[in-house]
Structure formats: structure tokens, C-alpha cells
Amino acid sequence: MYLAELVDAPVLQAGSRIGHVVDVRLFVPRHTEGQRVGTPEVFGVVVCPRRTGSFLGFERTDARAPALLAAFFRWRARGSFLVLWDDLAAVSKDAVELRPEAMRWSPALA
């Protein structure tokens, strides 16, 4: 499977489309023997109700400058949320489906 299949994929829940995958959050564990960076695994997907296209991540970082632009891009990506891997019901080439009871978390990166 390739990451490109997930990015920008439509997100379905209970049969209706609720947004698009704007990013895929990876968890990078401590590295093991023979590698310098741990093998990342999918931690969850960040979903946004609109397809915001170009990706600046203002809504997930505490970056507040440059003020006007940051505010604009945060507004554009309003309503984004994080869904953990375990809450995904199905992943196919053309859509990602969430479990009906999927929990929605804040997209902010710690």
C-alpha cells in the first residue's frame, strides 16, 4: 500500500462522506538494533470537512505567525479532527471508512 492512496482520500462514516484525509499521523518509536530512526507506524488520520488542497498545518501547530495568513489558513482548515487507527473500519484505494462510533480527537500535534 502507498501513502498516496490515503492522502486526500474521501472519509466515510455511516455511509456518508464527512470529509477528506488531510494527513496521516505516524508514531515513530525509539530505533531498534541496526537502524537510526524507529520504523514509523500509522497512529491515525487527520480528517478535514473540506479539501483544503495545499497543506500548511497551521491548525495543528501552535504557529501563530505571520498573523493574518496563519489566521486565514486555520480558518480554512476549521473542523479538522484526528481519528486513531483502531477507529478505522476499512481502507480501500478510493476511500477510508470510519467506524460509526469512531472517537474524534484534537488534530493538534503535542
Partner: peptide
């Protein structure tokens, strides 16, 4: 350029000053 100049991931503490951001925007 204006966005990256304000991104701590790239610039560490050398991010744009307020004045430069006002001029930049």
C-alpha cells in the same frame, strides 16, 4: 518563503520578527 521563515521546525529561534512579518504580509 514567508511561511517557512516563521516555522520553528525550519528556523529554530531565527523565525521572523514581528516587524518583518508586518512588512512581509
Amino acid at each position: 518563503i514567508l511561511i517557512v521563515a516563521n516555522d520553528p521546525d525550519y528556523m529554530g529561534e531565527h523565525v521572523n520578527s514581528r516587524a518583518l512579518n508586518v512588512a512581509g504580509q
